[in-house]
Design a protein around this nucleic acid. Structure first.
Length: 194
DNA sequence: GGGATGATCCCA
DNA sequence: GGGATCATCCCG
């Protein structure tokens, strides 16, 4: 299965969020490989998006990688959880796409071990859950999706699934931005969050 | 140094 | 519906 090349990432976050659906995200660790098909994403459109960490070009240690090269890995801590993003657009345009849900493909035994006592559908049906299941951590911050150990590959054929949109989740205090339909998901997929 | 703040999860 | 729980940020 072909690796997604640099040029794939060089588009704005809205376009990238939609193109990432159906792609395969792969994480290699000493324990082995775990992977899943991306079935839900959200676009964060940078300086003008009140819901984005980089709103108003806010540039800190945490957001620094959003200003970097498209295809860079942006990981972020939320309470006790790690969330993972794909950096979009050109350098100094701080946009990113949050990966909210995946459908497990490889390393099911690893995921089960990392999500003990949960039903399979609960392994990866949320942004904090899928990082745990795949073994994605803050150590992946600043890496790039074209190099190991965290990579993106072509997955499902285009046209084999239907795309739906809706408002983003968990950004209630962001004015007009909370209503924008910047969440993308595979219609009918059982691993969609919430 | 300290207080406020979450792009969440899990249990009640 | 609310508490857990903590890295990060910003102000002082």
């Amino acid at each position: 299965m072909p690796l997604l090349e640099q040029s794939f990432y060089e588009k704005n976050a809205l376009e990238l969020a939609e193109s990432l659906l159906g792609k395969l995200i792969v994480k290699d660790t000493p324990e082995g490989r775990a992977s899943g098909i991306i079935v839900e994403t959200e676009a964060y459109m940078g300086a003008e998006d009140r819901a984005a960490h980089s709103y108003g070009n806010r540039r800190t240690r945490r957001t620094e990688i959003m200003f970097g090269k498209a295809g860079s890995v942006y990981t972020y801590q939320m309470h006790t959880h790690t969330l993972v993003n794909v950096v979009a657009a050109e350098v100094d345009t701080p946009q990113a796409v949050l990966i909210r849900a995946v459908e497990p493909v490889e390393g099911l035994h690893l995921m089960e071990k990392r999500r003990p006592g949960r039903k399979q559908v609960e392994w990866t049906n949320g942004p904090g859950k899928l990082t745990k299941a795949l073994g994605i951590a803050m150590s992946d911050y600043g890496s790039h999706y074209t190099v190991p150990p965290l990579q993106l590959f072509e997955g499902w054929e285009h046209g084999d699934f239907e795309i739906a949109t809706g408002p983003r989740i968990g950004i209630d205090n962001t004015g007009e931005a909370r209503h924008y339909p910047w969440r993308f998901f595979v219609k009918g997929n059982p691993y969609i969050s919430r």
